[in-house]
């Protein structure tokens, strides 16, 4: 049905993951953001989401499709 769902999935998880990752880095030393047993849960969740998003984008091979179109 025309749309490769791996691209929007890859994009949204990369964007939201990056947002969480940066936020985790910026607030890492603040105990208010470490209420989860001392883990920087924003940082780790963000990093995992970026990795997952990148994996989905790689899987989609979007650059090949773009080259084919051109």
């Amino acid at each position: 049905m025309g749309l490769d769902i791996k691209i929007p999935i890859g994009l949204i998880f990369s964007i939201l993951g990056l947002l969480l990752l940066i936020f985790g880095l910026a607030t890492g030393s603040d105990p208010m953001y470490q209420k989860s047993l001392g883990f920087n849960v924003n940082l780790w969740t963000g990093a995992f989401m970026v990795a997952f998003g990148a994996f989905m984008l790689l899987l989609s091979g979007f650059w090949k499709k773009k080259a084919e179109k051109q």
């Binding site: 985790g24 208010m32 953001y33 209420k35 989860s36 047993l37 849960v41 924003n42 969740t45």
Partner: peptide, 9 residues
């Protein structure tokens, strides 16, 4: 368990 950030997620 979730601080601001992952709480939104």
């Amino acid at each position: 368990y979730y601080p601001v950030g992952v709480l939104g997620l």
